[in-house]
Design a protein around this nucleic acid. Structure first.
Length: 277
RNA sequence: GCGUCGGUGGCAGAGCGGUCAAUUGCACGAGACUGUAAAUCUCGCGGACAUCGUCCUACGUUGGUUCGAAUCCAACCCGGCGCA
């Protein structure tokens, strides 16, 4: 008997969060955030976290569960989310997954190789190899996977070899060495506003973020974690960081953020075509 | 007004007689996506046509030199700087 879950997906600024609260209130649910950055404490304005007022008493999970310096990955999400889904369903409530990190949906619904967490030392060694060498090593171990991979995408190549190091090959997603092992009865809500409307929403929200103190927030986070980590925290933190370091002038800040957010939204829209099939 | 440097595709900025529809970056468009995912990677990006490819219109404007010009010359227009 699969557990029923509601999945709400859509590009940034499309109104996913408020829709989730509405659904939760109407159907008796709890919200699980599907967002790779809202897990971090202190990233509030830049990640557009929902406020206490917006939540309207609905429990929200997987927000503010990590310190900014701690890693969090798709594997952590699959483990956390599948646990929470069971707990929420056990309480007789509807688990509602909402968020913009569509890869996390993909990982939860289609699985990740079991027992293959990041191995920093191995990654360091592999990073030193040429792209051709990485690819030929994958070909030697797993022709099937090699055919799927982009031979130029080093990050994926390294990860494939990381999986190969423990499993010998990269498992197809239908096998049993893939997590999670639970199947869900998924109901999708896909929010995909028309182009011009979304663009306007993104810019309006960006303007609001700036007046709410986005730059100040990035400043605080930067002091805490340094420039290297700051760049890993997403486009707002990276772009505003460039400004704080004097690498870009104030006039270019807003146009750059707007353009990057739009690129991000387009990227998300590409996932929607794939996920909600 | 004189001198000087410059005006190139949406922007920035290469090219400086042919191999240039024009390097590159940004922006833009499309796509991939098996634990860094707001990451990483791929492709396209003057126009028209049926793939290689062909044909148009293009490098401020107008003329000129040349077999051939974004590239050389002249005048003009516009901009930066210097001197007045």
């Amino acid at each position: 008997m699969p557990i029923s879950i509601l999945c709400i997906a859509g590009p940034t600024a499309s109104g996913k969060s408020s829709r989730a609260v509405e659904e939760a209130l109407a159907r008796g649910g709890e919200v699980i955030s599907v967002d790779s950055r809202q897990v971090y404490r202190g990233l509030d304005i830049g990640t557009e976290k929902v406020s206490v007022e917006e939540i309207r008493g609905v429990p929200h999970h997987l927000i503010d569960i990590r310190d900014v310096n701690e890693p969090y990955s798709a594997g952590d999400f699959v483990a956390d989310a599948s646990r929470l889904i069971e707990e929420i369903a056990g309480r007789g409530k509807l688990p509602i997954l909402v968020g913009g990190t569509h890869f996390y949906f993909d990982a939860l619904l289609h699985g990740l190789p079991d027992g293959t967490p990041p191995d920093q030392e191995l990654r360091r060694k592999l990073e030193a190899l040429s792209t051709e060498e990485l690819f030929s090593r994958i070909q030697a171990a797993d022709l099937r996977r090699a055919a799927e991979l982009d031979p130029a995408n080093r990050r994926r190549l390294v990860r494939a070899l990381e999986i190969i190091a423990t499993h010998g090959s990269v498992p197809p997603r239908t096998t049993t060495w893939v997590l999670p092992r639970t199947n869900y009865a998924v109901e999708w809500v896909v929010i995909d506003p028309p182009r011009e409307e979304l663009r306007a929403k993104i810019d309006a929200r960006l303007a609001s973020a700036l007046t709410r103190g986005l730059v100040e927030e990035v400043c605080r986070v930067r002091e805490e974690v340094g420039d290297k980590r700051l760049n890993e925290l997403g486009l707002e933190y990276r772009v505003v960081g460039e400004y704080l370091r004097g690498e870009r002038d104030e006039a270019s800040l807003l146009p750059a953020l707007s353009a990057k957010l739009w690129q991000y939204a387009r990227h998300q829209k590409a996932w929607l075509r794939k996920l909600a099939l």
